[in-house]
């Protein structure tokens, strides 16, 4: 057993739990995207959005961008939202 001081911090564990829940939610949404006939496009957009929210959480918490110098954080956020928008646009509009 690690000593109490070497346990992961609470915010780390909370983000990990949120990521696990988001993974399971994305899975369910993905199932409905593959089997639905009508609103599949909304589900596709939802799956991609959930994926990039997870990416955002990994970047901000695990990669410590939350406390990093502003331009690293800003650059990462711009990439996350840019890539997400581009992918949703390609997948939904084409």
């Amino acid at each position: 057993m690690p000593k109490p001081s070497s346990l992961p911090s609470r915010s780390l564990t909370l983000v990990w739990l949120a990521l696990v829940v988001a993974t399971l939610a994305g899975w369910q949404l993905g199932e409905s995207a593959q089997h639905a006939h009508g609103p599949a496009r909304a589900a596709v957009a939802g799956v991609v959005a959930i994926a990039f929210l997870k990416v955002l959480a990994v970047g901000l918490q695990f990669m410590e961008l939350r406390e990093a110098v502003w331009f690293l954080r800003a650059g990462f956020c711009v990439w996350v939202f840019g890539a997400m928008t581009a992918l949703i646009a390609i997948l939904v509009l084409r």
């Binding site: 994305g26 899975w27 949404l29 993905g30 995207a33 593959q34 596709v44 799956v47 991609v48 959930i50 994926a51 990039f52 997870k54 990416v55 990994v58 970047g59 695990f62 990669m63 890539a83 992918l87 997948l91």
Partner: peptide
Amino acid sequence: GGLFWHLVDLLWIVLFALLYLI
């Protein structure tokens, strides 16, 4: 090392969504 590992993790998150889920 941590940053590289998390990079690998976040790339998989998107690959997984695009290849398995959509």
